[in-house]
Design a protein around this nucleic acid. Structure first.
Length: 259
DNA sequence: CAACTCGCACGGTA
DNA sequence: ATACCGTGCGAGTT
């Protein structure tokens, strides 16, 4: 149930360590200011913390927790197993229509979950394949650490830094609005960007800095409500990345008990 | 170190 | 959801 968020040395890392270095000087200045504060407090709270060292990532309407869930060795093994087990969509299932044009999705996708579950995203409805042993064990590890249960996982495989995902929110109606989305990353580290919905476009009425993270091999990112209401997220192209990444987003789908 | 090139990231558009 | 294109900036070079 509870998350044991470390408030000690990790507290400020949500806006410094976790922030990828930005080319913009403005952001660098903000980092320095924050580092001046928060130098002393919180040592007494360290003893209450869980073995898992969570980093809190917060902004206006954004609430995330980040942790290293698996060791490098564990994560290596899981990545290899998933490469053997997961079967990705092909053909029409791997295409999307935008502004009347049909494109290949710039990544591979698969959906697994409890029997009979269906999930609609990007306008297409699809049913969940039965859990594989590895997906099930990762799901259980996430539940053990977070206290949250999940009945569905969306698997995205990015073969290299060219594969990506555009900006969007996970605002599907069938998602349990109270359940966080748990994102497990395996393979190549990739940048991950949050942008507030009111800070998009040229003349956005609000100036809110994006939140930039790097999602490491074996990491877990919890996106708590109401994050997905106010913040878009994306996985941008990174041409220097040459290796594949597999991302698992565990979700709770509300049971559709009609018919 | 100023000037230049190159590649990448980003924002807007359809 | 996407690709495409224009712009600007940082890194690297001479």
């Amino acid at each position: 149930m509870e998350k044991f968020v470390v408030r000690g040395p990790n507290k400020r890392s949500c806006t410094s360590d976790a922030l990828i270095r930005s080319p913009r000087k403005k952001i660098k200045l903000e980092e320095d200011e924050r580092m001046k504060e928060e130098e002393d407090e919180d040592e007494a709270l360290a003893e209450f913390s869980n073995p898992v060292p969570w980093q809190k990532i917060e902004a206006e309407g954004l609430d995330c927790d980040y942790a290293q869930l698996f060791s490098t060795e564990e994560a290596d093994k899981l990545f290899k197993q998933l490469e053997e087990e997961v079967v990705y969509s092909t053909g029409e299932e791997a295409k999307v229509q935008v502004f009347g044009k049909v494109y290949n999705i710039p990544r591979k996708q698969a959906t697994y979950g409890d029997a009979g579950l269906t999930y609609t995203y990007s306008g297409v409805r699809r049913s969940a394949c039965p859990w594989t042993p590895t997906l099930e064990s990762i799901r259980d590890a996430v539940t053990k650490t977070t206290g949250q249960t999940f009945n569905f996982v969306l698997v995205n495989r990015y073969k290299d830094g060219q594969d990506h995902m555009g900006e969007h929110r996970d605002d599907e109606k069938e998602l349990d609005p109270l359940c966080p989305i748990a994102s497990v990353s395996l393979g190549a580290a990739r940048d991950f960007i949050f942008r507030h919905r009111d800070a998009r476009g040229k003349q956005s009425r609000r100036q809110i800095e994006p939140v930039r993270l790097e999602l490491a091999h074996g990491s877990l990112l919890l996106m708590n409500p109401p994050t997905n209401t106010f913040w878009y997220h994306s996985l941008p192209v990174r041409k220097k990345v040459l290796l594949p990444r597999i991302n698992l987003t565990f979700r709770r789908i509300v049971l559709d008990r009609k018919k």
